[in-house]
Write a protein that binds this DNA or RNA. Structure first.
Length: 192
DNA sequence: AGTTCGATCGCCT
DNA sequence: GGCGATCGAACTG
């Protein structure tokens, strides 16, 4: 066939410390149906010592997947109108997830594509990801994550996370330096 | 039962 | 830089 479909990243990739998973997801390819895109910006949300994490106060019907096995999608509705996609990290029983904040589409790049993909609420809309994908196993589908076809070297930037108040000082945002799809907020110089 | 407010975004001044 | 959209989870009473 002309359409090669390499295996998704194995579950062991996700069964690691959340920060490692957040960094290593940069440059990986996320696929949903015919759409694929390279992950260029992520944020780590820790299970402990992170008041900003949705999992900070224990499992609820909404956050339960974060406490389960790694490699599952935690999707939630924010501000009543946008969906955010996270990938669960850490071994089963340990909370931790990685927010996908921006991606660079591999197919169909046009002039105004940047503003359709350079934010967590935008990329889900562009890729058709909604609450129906809550709990999806990204080692199986319909959303999957893969090694990139190339071995491009990337420079990783680190900064505090965007738009949170609790634990705002923690350097848990990671992005590919210089990539134009990195969200506007993330490209700002961190204050000091 | 009522209130608050958020891991956002786009439009307004 | 500020604010409204629009919903539900979490918190208050």
């Amino acid at each position: 066939m002309t359409n090669d479909r390499p295996r998704p990243l194995p579950r062991s990739f996700y069964a690691r410390p959340t920060v490692e998973v957040a960094r290593d997801l940069l440059g990986k390819v996320i696929r949903h149906g015919e759409l694929s895109a390279r992950i260029v910006e992520t944020e780590a949300y820790l299970g402990v010592d992170d008041a900003a994490a949705h999992s900070a106060r224990g499992p609820t019907p909404r956050t339960g997947v974060i406490f389960g096995p790694p490699g599952r999608a935690y999707v939630y509705l924010i501000y009543g109108m946008y969906y955010c996609l996270n990938i669960v990290a850490e071994p089963a029983g340990v909370a931790g997830c990685v927010l996908i904040r921006a991606v660079e589409p591999i197919t169909a790049i046009t002039g105004d594509t940047v503003k359709a993909y350079n934010g967590p609420g935008k990329l889900t809309r562009a890729m058709g990801i909604t609450l129906e994908h809550y709990g999806v196993d990204v080692t199986r589908g319909p959303i999957t994550i893969h090694m990139p076809p190339d071995r491009e070297r990337i420079a990783i930037g680190v900064s505090p996370r965007v738009g949170i108040r609790q634990s705002a000082d923690l350097p848990l945002r990671f992005f590919i330096q210089g990539n134009r799809f990195v969200s506007r907020a993330a490209s700002r110089e961190p204050r000091r």
